[in-house]
Simulated scan of single mutants.
Amino acid sequence: MDSLVELDARVADCAACPRLVAWREEVAAVKRAAFADWTYWGRPVPGFGPPDARLLIVGLAPAAHGGNRTGRMFTGDRSGDVLYQALYDVGLASQPTSVSLDDGLELHGVRITAPVHCAPPDNKPTPGERDTCRPWLVDELRLLRPTLRVVLALGAFGWQATLPALAESGVSLPRPRPAFAHGAHVRLDGLDLFGCFHVSQRNTFTGRLTPEMLREVLSAAARTAGLTPRAPGPVD
């Protein structure tokens, strides 16, 4: 593939994992009562952000009634509300909310993706589904490589899925492979890897991940990538 546009189009047409295809289509047909008037996306959700991004954020998978409904990563659910607010707070997004494909949101130097592009039952893709989806992330990393400087993995799943994808895209990894931790920062072969707790409701509702913690990691990753974030901290 020669471009992210082509990659995104091919991702959106993927039907490689029968369990995920059945689930995403069932959710799109049954819907949630609050979104009864929506026409769900109901397909694999491609990455979102500019093709010359310097920072790539890697999550887990689209939410059944979030990305699977709207067609954009981390859009239309509470995890996305937290992430996009933080991106806006540090100057990496044009607005603090992400609700639909046509809401005008733009990211500044940042792209958001996931190692699994279909919404999984119970938010738990199988190891086989993760591995089947990996070539998409490998291709995305290769296409971004001319400008990419930092990868930020959200959660242990995102971290563990990113490491082999980085290796397959041509990035040399240390031995033993680095372990996930919130705030982890590993310097790789021409690329830096950061770790952050996932913006899941479990983490944000319990205070394991606070908005301040998220802004601090985003700001550190952005600075390392050569972007210019606003200072982390309370935002009016």
Score class of each variant (00 low, 15 high):
Pro121Tyr: 14
Ala93Glu: 10
Ala93Thr: 13
Gly49Met: 08
Val116Leu: 09
Thr75Ile: 04
Pro115His: 01
Leu107Gly: 01
Gly128Arg: 13
Val116Lys: 03
Phe35Met: 13
Gly128Phe: 11
Pro120Asn: 02
Val99Leu: 14
Leu105Ile: 09
Met73Val: 13
Asp103Ala: 12
Trp41Asp: 00
Ala53Asn: 06
Tyr40Ile: 11
Arg72Gln: 04
Ala64Tyr: 07
Leu56Met: 04
Gly71Met: 10
Phe35Ile: 09
Asp131Trp: 13
Cys118Gly: 07
Ala119Trp: 01
Lys31Arg: 10
Arg134Gln: 09
Arg69Gln: 04
Asp103Met: 03
Ala61Trp: 05
Pro96Asn: 10
Tyr40Cys: 02
Asn123Ser: 12
Pro62Ile: 12
Leu107Gln: 01
Ser98Arg: 05
Phe48Met: 09
Asp37His: 14
Pro125Arg: 03
Ala61Asn: 15
Gly71Ala: 08
Ala93Ile: 15
Arg54Phe: 09
Leu60Cys: 09
Leu87Pro: 00
Cys118Asn: 11
His108Glu: 10
Phe35Leu: 14
Leu83Arg: 00
Asp37Ala: 14
Asp102Pro: 01
Asp122His: 12
Gly59Trp: 01
Tyr88Leu: 07
Arg78Thr: 06
Pro96Ser: 02
Asp89Leu: 04
Gln95Ile: 03
Lys31Ile: 00
Asp102Phe: 13
Val99Lys: 09
Pro46Ser: 02
Asp122Glu: 14
Pro50Leu: 09
Val58Leu: 04
His108Ala: 14
His117Met: 06
Gly104Thr: 05
Gly66Thr: 07
Ala86Trp: 05
Arg32Gly: 11
Asn123Trp: 15
Asp77Trp: 10
Phe35Asn: 11
Gly67Ile: 07
Gly49Cys: 09
Tyr84Ser: 11
Ala53Val: 02
Pro115Asn: 00
Thr70Asn: 05
Asp103Trp: 01
Leu101Pro: 15
Val116Ser: 02
Asp102Asn: 08
Pro115Gln: 00
Leu56Asn: 04
Arg69Phe: 10
Pro127Ile: 07
Ala53Phe: 06
Ser94Ile: 12
Glu129Met: 03
Gly67Met: 05
Arg72Asn: 11
Pro50Gly: 03
His108Leu: 15
Leu87Ala: 00
Trp41Val: 00
Val116Ile: 12
Trp38Tyr: 14
Asp52Pro: 06
Pro44Cys: 10
Gln95Pro: 05
Gly59Gln: 00
Leu107Tyr: 04
Val58Arg: 01
Gly91Trp: 06
Val45Met: 04
Ile57Gln: 00
Asp122Gly: 14
Gly76Leu: 03
Arg69His: 08
Leu101Ser: 15
Val110Pro: 05
Leu83His: 01
Pro115Met: 02
Ala36Lys: 06
Pro127Met: 13
Thr70Ile: 12
His108Arg: 15
His65Gly: 02
Gly104Met: 11
Phe48Val: 09
Arg134Tyr: 02
Leu83Ala: 04
Arg32Phe: 12
Gly91Met: 02
Pro44Arg: 07
Phe35Val: 10
Pro135Arg: 03
Asp131Glu: 10
Arg134Leu: 08
Pro115Tyr: 03
Phe35Glu: 13
Val82His: 15
Gln95Phe: 06
Gly67Ala: 06
Ser79Asn: 15
Asp131Ala: 10
Thr132Asp: 10
Thr113Lys: 11
Val45Arg: 02
